[in-house]
Design a protein around this nucleic acid. Structure first.
Lengths: 259, 259
DNA sequence: GCATTTCACCTTGCATGCAAGCTGGAATGG
DNA sequence: CCATTCCAGCTTGCATGCAAGGTGAAATGC
């Protein structure tokens, strides 16, 4: 199980030469995270965002293997920034650096997903508690956003628009952590949430319609609005537990072939 | 607040030349983390551990400022591994890289500690829940360790041995996360726990005797042993909340002068 | 004496160069 | 035909070289 290469062997990276470097020079990213933190923070950041995005969007599927050299050439930079970006990606579990063999895009096993969901349950629960604890602060805008997302989800459910549902769902969870005010929770969730996104997007059309999701979100919003800390945390945790209980069996069934 | 240098200006790093490099070559670390993960994983890992330890033990106090060059020389390596180690330390909040000024060891403000404790509350609660959920697995050794630590704490409290209490307390919390089986929770807690250790050690003799700690730990152990998931999680969270409520006022009083 | 300008130095960021080591396959012996 | 040995090449890890860009202080003008 150690020396075996994944199903997907070496393959060309699907970009033109210097794609990221040129985009970064003009101040825009291919499709960075929703909140653009800073304009251009250097090539290592560019490489990191590009690679992370490529993995999450499955342009670099699990089992993909390449050398720093190739990636650096494709990105129009030297090996150094790619090397540092890879170190970050390895710490976050996206890739594995095989000592003298190259870089391997890791698969997401059901066990990984269970771990990720445990973290999400705990951290989003904490975020909900924090929001509820300061229900009187200037978070009315956050609360309005949460309510709007919940309404959008309910609406999308009525029209069976799963993609719209997914967008609204992601917006809800983004707002939940964005508004909680704890930057560490924010960053930690951002680290693990990407991986769950990948799995959720792939299984979106495989699982039963998330008919309870809007109700559960509404319960979270109500608890936050009323300032009930314990209820908010428990509602958020229950919501993620529920989602996990639906997702994991499906992943086991498709046997993580192309995660 | 931006251009001001901290109270501590540039100072020599208190080591001999090549300290870490030579130690790493022989396969031992100055004082790495309790669980030695791998033998020698390269200079960047050596630099990371050394610097992290130096910051946590206050050899590099907050406000300390230096260039990669100096540190690299002191550690007997080139700038490259130091640079990568610094990137990691910055992501974890230990230092701040001032674009063209040098590396600044960050202070730990009360706000930071609040954030850290929120994370600890959430993640250790999850760990306790996980342990309780598989109360019948082969975790009897973990449970025994937890019970032993709790007993040691009670004993240390009776003899007013605060240092022994701290050791037992840290062992308890280490076991709690080590036994939970979720590697991501483990790593995330390890990341933030170091910072809380720094604060707790500094305030150890300033806060009221932790007379309730043994009782609270016992409640966690009992809930895990009986497999009561919700009770275990809530007990762990309550314990950390309690600790936080004692710690934060003290930090505000001493006004984070030398954190 | 104070504000302003300038300039040399120091710092990081990245490219490139170099070495060690493992891999995989080819060549060889049985 | 199979096992064994050896070797060449490719890989990462780290050192060093180079350039862009601020910083801070000294020098200068008012």
């Amino acid at each position: 199980m150690s020396g075996r290469k994944g199903a997907a062997t070496k393959r060309q990276v699907a970009t033109q030469t210097g794609k990221v470097a040129r985009a970064a020079a003009e101040g825009r990213m291919p499709s960075g995270s929703p909140e653009s933190e800073q304009a251009s923070e250097g090539r290592v950041e560019a490489a990191y965002r590009y690679l992370r995005n490529a993995i999450l969007s499955n342009d670099l599927p699990a089992g993909f293997q390449a050398a720093e050299n190739e990636i650096a050439t494709q990105l129009g930079m030297s090996r150094t920034p790619v090397h540092e970006a890879m170190a970050r990606l390895q710490e976050e579990g996206f890739v594995q650096i095989l000592p003298r063999k190259g870089i391997l895009v890791r698969a997401l096993t059901p066990a990984d997903l269970l771990e990720i969901y445990d973290v999400l349950i705990a951290l989003e629960g904490a975020a909900a508690e924090l929001l509820a604890a300061e229900a009187d602060r200037a978070l009315s805008s956050t609360l309005a956003e949460l309510q709007a997302s919940t309404d959008a989800m309910a609406s999308a459910l009525r029209t069976d628009d799963l993609d719209a549902w997914r967008v609204a769902d992601e917006r809800f969870h983004d707002m939940l952590v964005a508004g909680c005010g704890n930057s560490r929770i924010k960053r930690m969730i951002a680290t693990v949430a990407g991986q769950s996104h990948r799995a959720r997007r792939l299984t979106l059309h495989l699982r039963p319609a998330p008919i309870n999701s809007a109700t559960e979100h509404q319960a979270i919003v109500d608890a936050i609005r009323s300032g009930d800390v314990a209820a908010a945390g428990e509602a958020a945790r229950a919501h993620r537990r529920h989602a996990r209980s639906q997702l994991v069996p499906i992943l086991k069934r498709i046997n993580f072939r192309q995660l």
